[in-house]
Amino acid sequence: MSLVLPGEHVPAQHVNLKLGPGLLQISAASGEPTIIATRAGEVKHSANRNKWWIEGNSRRYVPAPQESVIGVVVARSGENWRVDIGAAHMASLDGLAFEGATKRNRPNLKVGSLLYARVSLAHKDMEPELECFDAQTRKAEGFGELKGGFLVTCSLKMCRMLLDPKHFLFPLLGSRFPLETAVGINGRVWINCKEPRQTIAVARCIEAVDPDGGGMDELALKKFLGTLDV
């Protein structure tokens, strides 16, 4: 584990290096690019070391390219939409940024609609931009409007934990009842169950496992589930 403070050097290196939240590439006096931390936290990287980020306990989401987020449509602006993704600024979503969308055939989103989207552009001096398809295949790949269901907010760290396929929470819940989920890296989780009591149970379990909440492990959660009517 490596803890850093803002301004400290981070030894992130890879042929296809991708920097996530909390990291910034600058040019050193020698002309060589160097990576520094922009916030305090723990240095993390993916298994193949091509993605690096700073893991902190912040609840304010800082957009980074290629990240999947859950947003709420707050307004329409011409052919685009303004979307709240929990960041300092609203994001913009082009009406054509959907699979198969044309000027005559585009989604009919309304204020309040939930979206599972990908950050296509993130720069500290510009509004973030979203798209609802995979940039390589141009297919939806699960992105788009989230209909029905319930939105749960949690810490950013909890979302990163849930995106790990080895995490115990969703497999444990999915073994008990049908469950549909979408996890945004921006501290939002969308859940869709057949019965309201199941939805309430999932929301309470996420809160219980969240490091900023109960911080329960798998054994403790199984006992907790036994107290719920599911």
Score class of each variant (00 low, 15 high):
R82Y: 04
N50W: 04
E131Q: 12
V83Q: 06
W81R: 08
P63L: 06
S113V: 02
K110P: 02
K110N: 09
L121Y: 07
E129Q: 11
R59D: 15
A101H: 01
R106V: 03
L114A: 04
A37F: 02
F98T: 00
I85D: 05
G31P: 11
S77H: 06
E55N: 15
R104M: 06
E67V: 09
G71C: 01
E127S: 05
D84A: 09
V111G: 06
G41K: 03
I26Y: 06
G31L: 07
A87M: 04
P128S: 04
K44N: 02
M126G: 00
E42D: 08
L24I: 05
A135W: 01
T34G: 10
L121S: 03
D125C: 07
V69D: 02
S68N: 10
F98D: 00
S30F: 15
E32K: 07
E55K: 14
L93T: 03
N48C: 12
N57F: 15
A29W: 10
V72I: 14
D94W: 04
G31R: 03
S68D: 15
E129L: 14
G71Y: 00
V62Q: 04
N50M: 08
S58N: 13
V74W: 11
E42N: 12
K110R: 11
Q66V: 12
G86E: 07
N80P: 00
I36P: 05
M126A: 11
D84L: 01
V62M: 07
H123V: 05
E129G: 00
P65H: 11
F98Q: 01
S58D: 14
T137W: 01
E67Y: 13
I36A: 10
R59Q: 14
V43Q: 09
E42R: 15
S92A: 08
D125Q: 07
M90L: 14
V43G: 01
L23I: 04
A37Q: 04
R49T: 12
K124S: 00
K124G: 00
M126C: 04
D84V: 01
A40I: 09
V73D: 06
T102I: 09
